[in-house]
Simulated assay, not measured.
Amino acid sequence: MTEEVAVPVRELPLAAATTGACCGIGVEGGLTREQAEASATLLKAVADPVRLRLLSAIRATDAGEACVCDLTPLVGLSQPTVSHHLKVLVEAGLLEREKRGAWAWFRLVPTRLDDVAAIFR
């Protein structure tokens, strides 16, 4: 039979107990709930390796834009799958889409790339 041993519980100062701050420095600021949700949506869009490759490839072109027909072989996926990934990036505001004849062309939205970087500043 094991014997129970009482372990002393360290008492927190009253301020820490009521505010949740154990070190007394108080943490305020940061993103609001709405900003965090918007930032999470943006980060989810770029959190996929295929989408990162697509963004990188478009950024690397001389014209700053690329046709879906050129992007498909780059990532080795079917055209519908690549189109899905591009749609996610367009919906996140990272890319703009322009229909030219039978093909869709995509270009970066530089200010949205700045928004990604700004999340961590």
Rank of each mutant, 00 (worst) to 15 (best):
M1G: 15
T2K: 13
T2G: 10
E3F: 04
V5D: 02
V5Q: 03
P8L: 11
P8M: 07
P8I: 01
V9H: 03
R10W: 10
R10A: 14
E11A: 08
L12A: 13
P13F: 01
L14M: 05
A15W: 00
A17T: 06
T18Q: 13
T18G: 01
T19V: 08
A21F: 07
C22Q: 12
C22G: 14
C23G: 15
C23H: 12
C23M: 07
C23W: 11
G24M: 06
G24C: 08
G24I: 10
G26L: 14
V27E: 11
E28K: 07
G29R: 11
G30W: 00
L31M: 12
L31V: 01
E34M: 05
E34H: 05
Q35A: 05
Q35R: 03
A36V: 03
A36Q: 08
A36L: 12
E37W: 00
E37Y: 01
A38K: 00
A40F: 07
T41N: 10
K44F: 10
A45N: 09
A45V: 08
A45P: 08
A47C: 09
D48R: 13
D48F: 08
V50P: 06
R51L: 08
L52V: 15
L52T: 10
S56G: 05
A57D: 10
A57M: 09
A57Q: 14
R59I: 01
D62R: 14
D62H: 09
D62I: 06
D62G: 15
D62A: 15
G64D: 04
C67E: 13
C67W: 03
L71V: 05
L71M: 11
L71W: 11
T72Y: 03
T72V: 15
L74M: 10
L74F: 07
V75W: 14
V75A: 11
V75S: 11
V75R: 11
V75P: 15
G76L: 03
L77C: 01
L77H: 14
S78W: 04
Q79D: 13
P80A: 09
P80L: 09
H84W: 13
H85Y: 08
H85I: 05
H85L: 02
L86T: 03
L86F: 10
V88S: 09
E91S: 13
E91T: 12
A92R: 05
G93K: 00
G93D: 02
E96C: 02
E96W: 02
R97G: 02
R97S: 14
E98G: 03
E98C: 08
E98L: 12
K99Y: 04
R100D: 12
R100C: 09
G101Q: 11
A102H: 15
W105K: 06
W105C: 05
F106A: 10
R107C: 06
R107P: 06
L108R: 08
L108E: 09
V109N: 06
P110C: 04
P110Y: 00
P110G: 03
R112P: 02
R112V: 02
R112Q: 12
R112I: 02
R112A: 13
D114Y: 04
D114P: 00
V116W: 00
V116F: 04
A118P: 07
I119P: 02
I119T: 09
F120G: 04
R121S: 05
R121Q: 05
